[in-house]
Nucleic acid binder design. Structure first.
Lengths: 337, 337
DNA sequence: TCGGATGTTGTTAGCGTTAACAATCAAGTG
DNA sequence: CACTTGATTGTTAACGCTAACAACATCCGA
């Protein structure tokens, strides 16, 4: 039991004196150096235990130049996607023996991302994961010569750095092809904000699937990921005669669409089929339960750390590009016409 | 433009040489020491700019004993509540000039919390915020002599440390009193897991409101916050004859309850009124839109940092207890009988 | 028995910064 | 004009750790 008096915390030298060895021997024990007599080792460990010694990682970082801390830059970790990704990153990082320092951006501008990166670099992180789903954030990675290994999540083509992402285009296709296979003439789309790469990818997949089937692509409706924007898009759609299938770019907006349809007396799936994107925990319990495209955020987080740690510990590597496939989840919001 | 060659990063001494001063003068400029001639200051700043110098915060932390980093321990930051709280904490911390290092716990046991705290203390954080909504986490704070100022969020009575929390009891009362005021004979309750302090508080508020009104409190139904557990509780409730009002301990479970009711042909609010808790962004678009109790997570995060920073910068203080009131949000899932 | 390889420990010198103190110089005071 | 005062700068010594090298004992084969 360490005394709680004003006494200063024990340092390596204190342990050394207690064990009757040099401080360097203590350091060797702590770092599992092979050449320490086992009898000496136990003596040192006992002294550590007795004094309640804890190694000062700051001093260690100063000399080793490694902090075993990774930085994470993300945007609005209140949203399910970013939150889940960051959670996956954090778990994977800890499993790999790293700490995680997080910066959640409020605004999305390039300068903000740059600041965050500088911020982390200053702090001495060994590597950085940037969850950069917006075009502007991805661009900020371009002017990034800061000597710290970096991985982008959802970072588009981002030139210099490795990228881990979900195949959004494939997801858009999955959703659209499913709806077409049910016999729908065409598929409407409520898209995400235009500066989000994910939104673009989903639009592209939707459009490609329609084209391949020889169908006309209607004009997509704009949304901003929020349930409210989905609600507004839903009201527009409900007022049109010929809408029988809608692919909504995320589950939250899909909820809004469902709500608008309910209010307008449009029945799902009897009159209109709806597909979402993300598979948030709630969507299974929407009315009706939502067919959607699942993103494995956990895998994305895990992979991003794998790639980063590989770069950290394996020296300079080829930059990688890792794509996680989305999966289709069938529920009752879609049925054969 | 700093060269990208293998050249080592510039240090204070390099700046000093470039500006023709001592490294200590550079340090003074960086720390806004008053006694530096303005002409010298500009010369130093120019040198810093020219060399692209960035101060090494690790070395600084070693000598000052302050890292300007705060630790945050939380449980499952995938959930809306914790995610929002942590987000609020992070924003407030950054505004106060602190970095944030986060540990998201997967399991809730006491040992896990202890480990996380040690982890952060080792890393040299100046202070710690523990988002400790479970009894076990709160208890882990008891054996916490680690010399680092700590604030608990939702930490119950937690003996030694300051606490910031939402008044859960008041929230439970608000929900229950609202339902009673609509004319319901009694109010059923779907509660959260028993080791969560928040769940207990809501139960207590619900029970108190019923007692004051002289009503019998039915046996609460158990849930685990998930929509699925709400769904199951909802099926039970739907099979009973005499249920006209339900207070559900969070919005996600309320979604499950609504789903179960819809499936069983129980109409909300015509036959049964439902109140949730949290006011997640989705609940306004449930079918029907959910009456709920809003928690200001942002304020909780902000206050916790305020309290912590006060302790950090003002020296040892009285431990504080700050309670944030919840607010009532009326929507269509409740109506007069 | 000796030279060299190997195992084990200690000594010394940083890492890049701030703190404490010393030194210098100009300005004001009696 | 000598003498204190305050502003400005430099010098030196930590902070607590690891790396590099030196020192010594031990063991092996020739």
């Amino acid at each position: 039991m360490g005394s709680t008096l004003g006494r200063r915390l024990p340092v390596m030298a204190d342990v050394a004196k207690e064990a009757g060895v040099s401080h360097q021997t203590v350091s060797r024990v702590l770092n599992d150096h092979p050449n320490v007599r086992s009898e000496t080792r136990t003596r040192v460990l006992e002294a550590i235990d007795k004094l309640g010694y804890r190694r000062n990682l700051v001093a260690r970082a100063l000399v080793t130049k490694h902090s075993r801390t990774l930085g994470v830059v993300s945007f609005d970790t209140t949203l399910y996607g970013p939150a889940s990704t960051v959670y996956g990153i954090e778990q994977a990082a800890r499993a790999a023996g790293y700490f995680v320092s997080i910066v959640s951006l409020k605004s999305i501008d390039r300068a903000g991302v740059r600041d965050a990166l500088d911020y982390l670099a200053d702090q001495g992180v060994d590597g950085i994961v940037v969850v950069a789903p917006q075009r502007s954030a991805a661009e900020a990675l371009a002017d990034l010569p800061l000597g710290v290994p970096t991985v982008a999540v959802e970072g588009g083509e981002a030139g210099e750095v490795s990228v881990v992402c979900v195949d959004q285009v494939a997801g858009g296709r999955l959703a659209t092809e499913h709806l077409l296979s049910l016999g729908h003439e065409t598929v409407w789309h409520v898209r995400g904000p235009s500066d989000w790469l994910e939104a673009e990818g989903r639009v592209a997949g939707w459009r490609a699937a329609l084209e391949e089937a020889g169908r006309e692509a209607p004009r997509p409706l704009a949304g901003d990921w929020s349930p409210r924007s989905g609600y507004e898009a839903g009201r527009s759609l409900a007022s049109m005669r010929n809408v029988t299938a809608v692919f909504v770019a995320n589950d939250q907006m899909a909820l809004g669409v469902l709500r608008a349809f309910t209010e307008q007396g449009v029945r799902v799936p009897e009159q209109v089929s709806v597909v979402g994107f993300d598979d948030i925990p709630e969507s299974e319990f929407f009315s009706p339960p939502l067919t959607t495209i699942r993103q494995d955020f956990d895998a994305v987080g895990r992979h991003s750390i794998e790639v980063l740690v590989r770069q950290l510990e394996g020296g300079p590597q080829e930059r990688e590009r890792l794509v996680v496939p989305p999966t289709f989840v069938a529920r009752v919001s879609t049925t054969r016409v």
